[in-house]
Simulated scan of single mutants.
Amino acid sequence: MGRKPLVVTATFLNIIFLAGIPLAPNIQVAFVLALIAGFSYSIMDSGTFPALIEAFPKNSGSATVLLKAFMLQYRRSV
């Protein structure tokens, strides 16, 4: 299967969240969209972390910590 379908799926789900959240008519719809965003982040992690570990085999621990720091900063800005 590979990692590409996971990353594409996560990106698609994130687009749904980002497009839908400003248009959410009530809190229930916003809650469902937030759940979709959570699924998106989890799927993205499962696709990107193995690729990052392969890209930096000698410093994989530092690379994953750095990626998580960037992802946390992104999530706070959304």
Rank of each mutant, 00 (worst) to 15 (best):
K4L: 15
L6T: 03
V8A: 13
T9H: 05
A10D: 09
T11C: 02
T11P: 00
F12R: 00
F12S: 01
L13I: 08
I15M: 07
I15W: 02
I15R: 00
I16S: 01
I16P: 01
F17G: 01
L18K: 01
L18R: 05
A19P: 01
A19Q: 06
G20C: 08
I21W: 03
P22I: 12
A24Q: 02
A24P: 00
P25T: 12
N26M: 03
Q28G: 04
Q28V: 08
V29N: 00
A30L: 11
F31D: 13
L33Q: 07
L33V: 08
A37E: 02
F39W: 11
F39L: 12
F39P: 03
S40K: 11
Y41L: 13
Y41E: 10
Y41G: 05
S42A: 15
I43E: 07
G47E: 07
G47K: 02
G47A: 06
T48W: 04
P50N: 09
A51D: 10
L52T: 13
I53V: 15
E54Y: 14
F56M: 05
F56P: 01
K58W: 06
K58Q: 11
S60I: 06
S60W: 10
G61N: 12
S62K: 15
V65M: 11
V65H: 10
L66P: 00
L67Q: 04
L67Y: 10
L67S: 02
K68T: 14
A69S: 14
F70L: 12
M71A: 15
L72P: 03
R75C: 14
V78G: 12
